[in-house]
Design a protein around this nucleic acid. Structure first.
Lengths: 296, 296
DNA sequence: GACTAGCATTCACGAAAAATGAATTCTAGC
DNA sequence: GCTAGAATTCATTTTTCGTGAATGCTAGTC
């Protein structure tokens, strides 16, 4: 049993089909078929149930899958550990919420790059849910997500504290005015795609304000969102710092919320198991240092 | 990077040489050389320092080695987990100290085989040190060893309590007589090979009796040992039950020791990480059941 | 200081395994 | 019954792996 067999198996399990797995692995179907069959022969029991629209895991397959994932993760870590002589260098994949990336990360990343120029940092923005998944499956080395969160396989450190504020067009000078001037069902909520924690928070706020069924409008970018708010398309919930540093700051009104709604903590997560990757260690060190500056 | 590369690497690291590793892996040197070189090329850093009498791990190699071992162990477990549908069956490798195998295991194994005839149990006897190593590296699924012992990766359960007694030829009716009738330096100590916990215990007893430099005579088998004692070649330390059930019981004298020396616990150890292997689970269940009978 | 023994490396070649692409089979849905 | 999507089979090509002989390197020996 070789690692490539394991990875083939995992790809088929994940995609639920030979064809899709083959595409993902950059090879042809027949090849995948044969590898899977060979693996089944070696283990001595079928791993998939074949039915006409794809493959489903059998009991044995379900038992094997977590091992496959752990082995794949281990092999990735092994190479990093061997290459890693303690000097931060090489690739480092960091994930972040859009909002954090906009205002908190630029100075941090600048500092990090100054201290560890040999690290090739890549930044991916996504929702908290996707980021957690990314860190767990090894796609990301670490990520900034919205708290609270808890997971046995994650090491979690507090990174930033944010004050969430409701943002509306400038014409609404106060929350009271906004509530008075909008229809019964409430204003349109401008939100990120599903998985974003701030979106859930906004839903709570809307429920409290008696707008449980207000319209939703999904946007993919932060600037787009603030732009739409400025154009009075609706309201949204964002960290105060994000709005204040936005180019559109003058065109929107900021409404302070009660502490229970406003308080939001941004956490930095990384896998807890295994080798401490130097580049990631260096990043965490920067984060800690900057955090102290921020706290001071 | 494939698992076979990893195993080749591990073999070279363990044996400290290409030639020896090749022998162990049933292949030729040139092949091992090439696999190692390919692995080094893939990782991008040398894993071994070549010097004229073999290979020594570099820093990178040292960092890689634990991953190699964990990956090898995982792949073994993965196959077992996939094959294991909850019904105890297939191979089960149990290790035991010679003494435990002689008197405690026969009824236990009989019971186990009656309940789970589909399991192909194999029993290996070795010293406590070897057994612990065997369980940790996956060669054994579980083992009976002499306590006390502690290790983060081992699940330890108490299996049997033994009373260790000093065994001498029959002519020595008491400890006092034995001490009076032997030379200044003490009697010859008949011991198992290094790594046996009872041997260490015997050394302690000898030190206490003022015989720190008594002669040692190493034997490989339990029957041989009792036979030699009967022939007055020397004395040894064994669980009381072992001596009493031995065929030579009438030919030797048993001397009770102080509780601190006499008390010995036999532990059952298994790896704590990973899948609970059904055959091993069944074995542990038998052990627990029998243990209660013994305790009653 | 040449010699030898033990080990690792290089290289060319044959054998084995994996990838490929075309043909085939299967089945749900029309 | 036909079609589209999916898996399998099979002959062929490509790649990789394992082998054995030759070579190179170094420590210990005479």
């Amino acid at each position: 049993m070789e690692l490539s067999d394991i990875q083939t198996f995992a790809a088929v399990a994940r995609t639920g089909g030979i064809t899709r797995a083959a595409e993902e692995l950059n090879t042809v179907q027949s090849n995948v078929t044969q590898r899977v069959k060979a693996l089944e022969a070696e283990i001595g029991t079928p791993l998939f149930e074949r039915h006409s629209r794809g493959m489903a895991l059998t009991g044995a397959g379900k038992r094997l899958l977590p091992y496959a994932q752990r082995m794949a993760a281990l092999s990735r870590e092994a190479v990093l550990a061997a290459r890693d002589d303690g000097e931060p260098k090489g690739p480092l994949a960091i994930g972040s919420m859009e909002t954090t990336a906009a205002v908190r990360l630029p100075p941090l990343l600048a500092d990090f790059h100054r201290r560890f120029p040999a690290v090739r940092l890549s930044l991916r923005t996504a929702t908290t849910a996707d980021l957690v998944a990314g860190v767990l499956d090894g796609t990301l080395d670490g990520a900034f997500v919205a708290g609270p969160i808890a997971h046995a396989d994650l090491t979690i450190t507090s990174a930033f504290r944010e004050e969430l504020v409701l943002v509306s067009a400038r014409r609404w000078a106060s929350l009271a005015e906004l509530r008075a001037g909008t229809p019964e069902s409430g204003p349109t909520a401008l939100v990120f795609r599903t998985g974003c924690t701030y979106r859930q928070r906004l839903e709570q706020v809307f429920v409290e304000y008696g707008w449980p069924s207000a319209a939703r409008f999904e946007l993919g970018t932060l600037d787009g969102m603030i732009g739409c708010v400025a154009a009075d398309m609706g309201v949204t919930l964002l960290p105060r710092a994000v709005v204040e540093r936005s180019a559109m700051n003058g065109s929107v009104a900021i409404h302070t919320l009660s502490p229970s709604h406003a308080r939001a903590e941004t956490l930095f997560i990384q896998r807890s198991a295994g080798h401490q990757y130097s580049a990631l260690e260096g990043f965490a060190a920067c984060l800690k240092k900057d955090d102290q500056v921020i706290a001071a």
